[in-house]
Amino acid sequence: MVEMIKVSRNYGTDIKALTDISLTIDTGEMFFLIGRSGAGKTTLLKLICNMETPSNGLIEVAGYNINNLKGKKLAHLRQKIGVAYQDFKLLNNRTVAENIAIAMEVSYKKPLAIRQTVRDLLLQLQLTDKHNTITEELSRGEQQRVALARAVANSPRLILVDEPTGNLDANTTERVMNLLSRRNKAGATIVIATHDPSIYQKGNHRVMELRDGTIHSLTRSKAS
């Protein structure tokens, strides 16, 4: 699903966010990115979803060189990639339901199907009572879940999640991970950047640790 060959990302001449990253993430895999703050996890996710372009190297997603795609082709590929950003990127003057629906609206899903999906996701993430709440009025934990709901709403083939449990309690963390596991079992490839060992130590997944923009280790977690 994701192929990265000798990918580097520099900011200016001094800051090297990522250096020579080569990586393959298989279709249907749940892949974890770990590392300290500033290690390059978020930059890596941004490169995969073409929010940023690499300084060097090749990135292929679903067989497409994502940096060469433009216009409709890029838009259609992005519809198949769901991203839950670390800063959420929610529309603060819109309701929770509208924020989640936006990902489906751009794919021209039917209004009835959109409403149904929104209700299901809110139920799974314990946000049913927030359906018509303006996102600005939500707590950070709630906003995080709305961002996740939007990322998975359009049934994307690739889901990128940046720190999904940073603001959540144990119970909600479990709900979030259950949701992602279900999507993964349904065939979606999932890449999660996290600090939280409790979520990647539970399954049998590959875990890549980044340090100072380079791959420090690539191991497989053991189910406990």
Binding site: C49, M51, G71, K72, A75, H76, L77, R78, Q79, K80, I81, V83, K89, L91, I102, A103, V106, S107, R150, N154
Partner: peptide
């Protein structure tokens, strides 16, 4: 700008 940026990220086409 924020909304238009987000629309691009979730895959809205230019014409949309």
């Amino acid at each position: 700008q924020d909304e238009l940026e987000l629309l691009k990220l979730v895959g809205a086409t230019n014409s949309y």
